[in-house]
Amino acid sequence: MVFAELEIVVPTFLVDTQKCRKNIVRMQAKAQQHQLAFRPHFKTHQSEKIGFLFRDLGITQITVSSFRMAQYFAQQGWRNITVAFPVNILEIEAINKLAKQLKLHVLVESTETVELLNSYLQYMVGAYVKIDNGYHRTGMDVVHIEKISTVVEAIEQSCFLNFAGFLSHAGNTYQAKNKQEIAKIHLNNIKQMNLLKNTFLGKYPEMKLSIGDTPSCSLMERFEGIDEIRPGNFVYYDAMQLLIGSCQLEQIAAFVACPVVAVHPERNELVIYGGAVHFSKESMDHHAYGICFGLVVEELVKGLQLMDGCYLKKISQEHGVVHVTKEFLAHKPVGSIIYLIPVHSCLTANLMKEDTLYLE
């Protein structure tokens, strides 16, 4: 990838497809090493082109975060999809259309949802019970075994649902500060999921345990009892993953190119055309910079390099204010381009679908 050869006039999301492929190969090899099914989450890239990279490597089953996204990838021929978001029963028409044409899995966490699905489904659907192992976003707590059993039994009694197993997402690893904290969260997740397996496997021998967060899947080597992993962010990585140690700089495959529109040397700041509508307002607490919204990189002869002391300090809708060093500011006049690693590539990719450039 050669930044200097690009003709950038507006904020542009740059994707290095060679790095994407290397990231996919690495994660696929890890899944194979641990005898895990690999069902990558496509919500990060939401891209037909990146989807082809997975398909070319023999991957046939995927995860998405909405039924609309499932429809998008179904149109591209994907026939085994898990929608890893609690069922929105108001989308039952879309659910039935998908279930008619492919192997569909959904998430449930209450008998109410199961009963509604049973009332309106027309085709068979696999159902995972969503488990909360500490993230506290959604899902059932493992300590409530009786409630979980009630939901599993309701699925089994349904005419149109098959009990697929238990699914969790340790999203709290994204708030970890180092590998040790990620390991603690991951091992707790593994422990809790295996408690469920030990309880239910005898009666449901086909059930699976599915987990999927990029920090754990990138760094950990213990997956005892787990059947499937569903990481997504790893295909691009981002500044957050770099900060917590999930990846190295050379593995990051997505950047935002932004024009410089104003220079304020008295404040060591540049203003860029690139704000919340491009990056999102996701921030991270950097150990040296405090709250920031992206990290500045430059492409040198030896490869990409983080520019020390240069970071996206604040953003509004279209504006971005970048704190820089005097040395960096000296060669970035109005009309030049700077390149940044977004804090959360999933959100940035979603916002910049119409301004994405795939680089070979």
Rank of each mutant, 00 (worst) to 15 (best):
G171D: 05
K326P: 11
E48Y: 12
Y289W: 06
E269I: 07
L90Y: 12
I338A: 04
L104T: 04
I92S: 05
E93T: 13
G58E: 03
R68T: 14
D227V: 00
G51D: 03
F85Y: 15
P86S: 11
G294Y: 08
I89Q: 10
G275M: 05
I190S: 01
I211F: 10
E181K: 03
M1C: 09
L196G: 01
I226R: 00
L249H: 00
V9Q: 13
V64F: 04
V108Y: 01
L117Q: 08
E224N: 13
M352L: 09
R267C: 09
T356L: 08
N268G: 15
V25N: 10
M207E: 07
V263C: 07
Y311W: 10
R26F: 01
L14Q: 06
L304S: 00
P11R: 03
N233T: 14
L249F: 00
A84R: 08
V125N: 04
H34A: 07
N80D: 15
M124W: 07
A74Y: 13
A330P: 11
E266W: 06
G139H: 09
H45F: 15
N23C: 00
Q75E: 15
V125W: 03
L201Q: 14
T348P: 02
V297P: 02
V235W: 01
I182H: 03
Q317L: 12
Q251Y: 06
A99D: 10
L270N: 05
D213M: 11
G320E: 09
M284C: 09
P333C: 10
Q32K: 14
L312C: 05
S210Y: 01
